[in-house]
Structure formats: structure tokens, C-alpha cells
Simulated assay, not measured.
Amino acid sequence: MSDQPHQGPVNPLPPVIVALFFLIFGIEITFFLGEKGIVGGPAAVGWRLAALEEYGFSPKIFWWMIENGVYPPEHLKRFLSYAFVHANFTHTLFVGVFLLALGKMVGEAFGAVATLFIFVLSAICGAVVYGLVVGGETWLVGGYPAVYGLIGAFTYILWLRLGQMGEAQVRAFSLIGFLLGIQLIFGLLFGGPPDWVGDIGGFATGFLVSFIVSPGGWSKILDKLRQR
């Protein structure tokens, strides 16, 4: 007999991940129903395109703001809003899978606030890196840079555990290496925009910020600074 309460076969997802998932898929379902003519009437067919133009991240607008020193709110919102609008259902589906899988592990290890912070900051930094490196007319849309930030946080967790076990910490980067390799192959075979630049920016942000937002992370950094 055990005094512990009964636990289900599947551990519940962190609420912040559930909220992000339903927000992303709620938007996608709205576009889908509009394209099928189920809601919104004839005008609903263009909802997705209108949303991509209104909320997508444009490198051209990014550089216009830098060159003119003007940062209107309707364009600043694009640094985050692009992560919630996707090109099609398949795009949304893959982002959702990554969000649930990596968000669960990172959320359980770091907590809700830190996980949300990583998601948001990775989206923003991924857009900045994309704008600086790619430029041009190709827009950035979809949540890959944000979920790659969660991959970065998960990589940090693996990196830390491998170090504690005395094993090669470089193995922690196997997942990101595999994913970027797949993207490179698909890009060479089928072409497409260089979204992977934003993904790398998101991953690097998630990995590096984990040193601070992980449990006890900031205290460890302060201790090392004091020792120096």
C-alpha cells in the first residue's frame, strides 16, 4: 500500500504550454474554417493572408525602423506576433508537436514563468537575427524560432546532466544538429526561405538564457563572479 495519491499514466502538461498550444491552434483553426467557408463568409478566405501581412515579421520594415530611428508599436509587435501565425496547417502542426514535447520537459524543469520567458525572448531574438542576417523581402512567420528556444533550453538540461555524469557534453547538441541537418537537406532539395537563420537565433537564445533562468542559475553565476 502506498500513501501517495494516485497518479495518472500521463503526466499533465504545464498550463503555460497548454495555453500557448491552444492560442496557436485556435488561430489556425479559425483560418481553416474561414478558408472552407464555414465561418466569416467570402471575406474569410483571405484571413490568413491578411494576418500574415499584419503580424508577420518583415526584414524590410525592420531595417526601415533602424535607418529612420522610428519604432511604431504596430511594427514592434511583429517581433513576437509572427510566431503565432503560420503559412498552413502542416506548418502549425509541426510547431505544435515541438511545443508540447519540449515545452513539457522544459516547463517541468524550469517552471512556468521561465518557460514562457524563454519562448517569448527566443521568438524576439530569432526575428532580430533573421532581420540582421537575411534581410531582403522574405518574411518570417511561424513559431519555429520560439520552439527552437525551448530546444535550446532542453539542450542546456542535457548539457548539465551529461556534465554531472562526467560524460561528453557535446552530445547534448545532437538534437539541434540533427534538426538543422534535416532543414539543410530539405532546403537544398526543395528550396524555400532561409527560416533556419531565425531558428538558430532562437536556439542560441534559449540555450544561453537558461544559464540565468534555470533553478539556481542566477545564483551560480553570481557565485562564480564573486570567486573571480
Rank of each mutant, 00 (worst) to 15 (best):
L132R: 01
W63Q: 07
S122E: 10
G41R: 03
A114I: 04
P42L: 00
H91N: 14
C125K: 06
I151P: 00
F57V: 03
P72M: 15
L49K: 11
P59M: 06
F79T: 12
E35G: 03
F154R: 14
E28K: 05
C125F: 15
K104C: 09
E28N: 09
I38E: 09
Y148V: 01
G107R: 07
E35D: 14
L121H: 02
G152P: 02
K36F: 05
F110A: 02
T155W: 01
L158T: 12
Y144Q: 07
Y55E: 05
A101M: 12
G135W: 10
V141S: 07
F119N: 05
P72S: 13
F154E: 12
I29N: 01
V106N: 10
L100F: 11
L80H: 11
F98N: 04
G37M: 08
G142I: 01
G69H: 09
I61W: 13
W139M: 14
E67W: 14
E67K: 15
S122D: 04
V45D: 05
G96C: 01
R78D: 14
G69I: 11
L33W: 08
V128D: 11
A50W: 01
L116W: 09
W64R: 12
A112R: 13
K77N: 12
P42M: 03
T30N: 06
T92D: 10
V85Y: 07
E53V: 02
L150E: 03
G34L: 06
Y55Q: 06
A123G: 14
G126S: 04
T30M: 11
I157K: 08
A153D: 05
N68G: 13
T155A: 14
P145F: 07
K36D: 00
V85F: 12
S122Y: 05
E53Q: 11
I38Y: 12
L102Q: 10
V129Q: 01
A83Q: 04
F117H: 04
G126A: 02
A51P: 01
A127S: 13
A127K: 08
F119H: 02
H75I: 06
G34C: 05
F84I: 03
Y55C: 00
K60S: 08
F98V: 12
V106P: 07
Y130S: 00
